[in-house]
């Protein structure tokens, strides 16, 4: 009987989640969705360490936040990053910063799929909070 109580709790949790899912569109894209958009220049998951554009994987979150904010406010010299950074709010920048900090500090082609999936899952698990 203990089991069936647990089962009921589990199922109740499920229907709660389903109810939450029927709610309005989220106000912000999640960190992963935003971070993926940076890949064409900074490498898949920010893991390009051999090019002119800086790697984002493993960058300390505060460094990312400071750079993006400065680009956005026009206080840091930029070629195109000022135009890009102006598309993001403080919360969005912070969420990306925390996500990138969790990515492996190595070239993408040296990273296995499993290793990356784990890093992406652990970044997602932070929920964008430190």
């Amino acid at each position: 009987m203990k089991n069936s109580i647990k089962l009921k709790t589990l199922l109740a949790a499920c229907s709660l989640m389903a109810a939450a899912s029927a709610q309005a569109e989220p106000t912000m894209a999640n960190a992963q969705a935003m971070a993926w958009q940076c890949a064409p220049c900074h490498g898949t998951n920010g893991q390009e360490f051999k090019e002119a554009m800086p790697p984002l994987a493993g960058m300390p979150a505060q460094q990312f936040i400071d750079a993006m904010t400065a680009y956005r406010e026009g206080t840091r010299a930029a070629v195109i990053m000022d135009r890009v950074a102006r598309g993001f709010t403080d919360d969005e920048i912070k969420a990306m910063a925390i996500w990138f900090e969790k990515q492996p500090v190595k070239q993408w082609d040296k990273t296995s799929l499993t290793e990356s999936l784990e890093a992406q899952a652990s970044a997602a698990a932070t929920g964008g909070q430190k």
């Binding site: 939450a20 899912s21 029927a22 709610q23 569109e25 989220p26 106000t27 912000m28 894209a29 999640n30 969705a33 935003m34 958009q37 940076c38 890009v84 598309g87």
Partner: peptide, 9 residues
């Protein structure tokens, strides 16, 4: 699952 918010670039 519900869809997240779309962001493009």
């Amino acid at each position: 699952r519900p869809l997240g918010r779309a962001i493009y670039s």
